[in-house]
Computed example of a mutant assay.
Amino acid sequence: MTSTLPARLPAAGGVAPVALVSESALRQNAPLALAAGTGSRADDVFAADAWGHGAEWVASVLSDLGMDAAPLDAAVLFGLPGSHARPVLSLRGRALGTKPLLRGEGVSYGYTHRAPLDTTVALVTGGYAQGVVRSLGNAVSVSIDGRRHRIVGRVAMDVCVVDVEDAVVPRGSEVVFFGDPVAGHPSLREWTDATGLTPAEIIAVVGVRADRRVTA
């Protein structure tokens, strides 16, 4: 199915967040998706560019496994919340830099967040143009070097601000917006709870708007 979603757009400065899709997770999930889809109405796994994972890539992996997409349960195949399967897609950004934020100072448009204490904030690649929904500001956290840090203030078009407190976050540090909870990443469920969107709606947008890459 041809995607009707917008094409990818580069983030500020040409540094786009990365939608990382895991081939090992897709291969591991495929037999589970077949079992889950048997005897029920299977979802169209190729809808919206394979739910943001890349229809051509998903088709090639399934073909290599000798599998037909028709009977597969898409939620299980892609490891969405509630499926008990490995998430195939994760969203990663990069820290562009940090700066001190003094008590009472605000961040981003409208100063919807003001620091209750002196702290440090990081500017991170990834904004609403790449699927980091505006309502995630002041609502969810990201993972940097294994620690959780909250997104604060309003999410901008290509970047957002993260309160890193006392952590040392060098420029270029990887920031995980969501991924595999088993690996300590924030869950996509946190995004659905904060936004009211479905997992499919979120990953379909993220997958086509971020810089999508395949990993083993």
Score class of each variant (00 low, 15 high):
Ile202Glu: 07
Pro181Lys: 14
Arg92Asn: 12
Ala7Leu: 13
Ala139Lys: 15
Gln28Thr: 15
Leu20Met: 07
Arg148Asp: 11
Arg150Phe: 00
Val15Phe: 03
Val175Ser: 07
Pro186Leu: 01
Ala59Lys: 14
Ala55Ile: 04
Arg134Pro: 03
Asp118Gly: 13
Val152Phe: 04
Ile203Tyr: 08
Ala200His: 11
Gly131Tyr: 04
Arg209Ala: 13
Pro81Asn: 04
Val140Trp: 01
Val162Thr: 02
Thr215Phe: 06
Arg27Gln: 11
Leu123Cys: 05
Thr195His: 13
Leu32Phe: 04
Ala11Val: 02
Ala7Ser: 12
Arg114Ala: 11
Ala25Asp: 06
His149Trp: 08
Tyr109Val: 11
Asp211Thr: 04
Ser3Glu: 02
Ser83Met: 01
Val76His: 00
His84Asn: 15
Val208Trp: 00
Gly153Gln: 05
Thr192Gly: 08
Gly179Pro: 00
Val164Pro: 00
Gly196Ile: 14
Gly66Ser: 08
Leu89Lys: 01
Pro81Phe: 08
Gly13Arg: 09
Thr2Asp: 13
Ala42Gln: 08
Leu197Tyr: 15
Thr112Ala: 14
His149Cys: 00
Leu117Gln: 15
Gly14Thr: 01
Asp118Thr: 08
Val176Gly: 07
Arg189Met: 09
Glu174His: 14
Ala210Phe: 05
Arg148Asn: 08
Leu188Asn: 02
Val15Arg: 11
Ala70Phe: 08
Ser90Asp: 00
Val206Asn: 00
Ala25Ile: 04
Arg134Lys: 15
Gly153Trp: 00
Ala200Lys: 09
Glu165Ser: 05
Ala115Ile: 11
Asp73Cys: 10
Trp51Ala: 07
Thr125Ala: 10
Ala19Lys: 03
Ala35Leu: 15
Asp73His: 02
His149Met: 02
Ile151Arg: 04
Val15Ile: 10
Arg92Leu: 14
Trp57Cys: 06
Met157Pro: 00
Ser83Asn: 04
Gly179Glu: 04
Ala129Gly: 04
Arg92Gly: 01
Gly131Thr: 07
Leu62Phe: 06
Gly196Phe: 10
Leu101Ser: 11
Thr120Asn: 14
Ile202Cys: 05
Arg103Val: 12
Arg147Cys: 07
Val182Asp: 13
Gly52Glu: 03
Gly196Tyr: 09
Asp118Lys: 07
Ser173Ile: 09
Val88Ser: 01
Val159Lys: 09
Trp191Phe: 14
Leu80Val: 03
Val142Pro: 08
Ala204Gly: 14
Asp145Pro: 03
Thr4Met: 14
Gly196Glu: 09
Arg150Pro: 10
Thr120Asp: 03
Val159Leu: 09
Gly82Ala: 05
Pro100Gly: 07
Pro6Val: 07
Val162Tyr: 05
Ala69Leu: 01
Ala7Phe: 13
Leu26Val: 10
Arg27Trp: 08
Gln28Phe: 14
Asp166Lys: 02
Thr215Leu: 10
His185Ile: 03
Leu65Trp: 01
Pro170Trp: 05
Val58Gln: 06
Thr119Trp: 10
Arg114Phe: 13
Ala25Glu: 08
Ala7Asn: 15
Val88Ala: 07
Ala200Gln: 15
Tyr111Met: 14
